[in-house]
Amino acid sequence: MRNVCPTEMIDLSLHILDIVENSTKAGAKLVEIYLSEDAEKDLLQIIIRDNGIGMDREMVKTVRDPFVTTRTTRRVGLGLPMLEQAAKEANGGLSVISKPGHGTEVRVTFQASHIDRKPLGDIASSIITLIMGNPEVDFIYESDLNGEKITLDTQAIRAELEGTTTITDPAVLKLIRGLFM
C-alpha cells in the first residue's frame, strides 16, 4: 500500500471540496453549499452557488465535457464531469446555471438509496480545508439529512470574533468540526 490516502474521489465530500475550489478560483467571495437528503423522496441533493465571475452560455455548454475544455481557457476541468458521472451512476444528474458577472450554481441529484451512490464522507474536513485554503472567502453551509440539520455561516463567525483572532485559528476550527460530530 502506497499510503492511506484515497486515490480517487471516493465520496461526495471530496467532490464538494473540488467543485467549491472551482468557485474560489473563479473569484467568488461567497460560496453557499446546501446538502439535503430526503428518505421519503429517496433523493439526495447538493447545491453549490457562488458569486464568482460566472461563465457564458458557450462555456456552460462545454464545461461538463473533459475533452472539449482547454487548460488555457477553462475554469473547470475534470471535476464537474467526474461529479456528473457519480450522479448518473446513482440515477441522478447534474445541472449548471451561470451568468457572466453573477456567478454559478451547480445542482446535483442522486437516488439516495442507490447501491452505487457514493457515501457523503467527511464533510467537516472538506469545509475546514476550504476555510483554511481560502481565508478571504466566506462560506454558508446548510445541511438537512432526513431532518438532522447543520448550519454554518463564516460571515457570522467572523463578525462575532471581531478581529480578535482569525477564522483559521485552531480553536475556531475545532468548534466548526464539532458541529459535524
Binding site: 484515497p6 471530496l14 471540496l17 473540488d18 475550489e21 474536513s125 485552531p170
Partner: peptide, 23 residues
C-alpha cells in the same frame, strides 16, 4: 497544500488534516 482535482483525488485533504493537527 496543492488542492486541485488531481490533488484532492490523490489525498490532499488527508494531508491538510495531518498538517492542521500538527500545527
Amino acid at each position: 497544500v496543492h488542492m486541485g482535482t488531481c490533488g484532492i483525488a490523490a489525498g490532499a485533504r488527508t494531508i491538510m488534516n495531518t498538517l492542521l493537527k500538527k500545527l
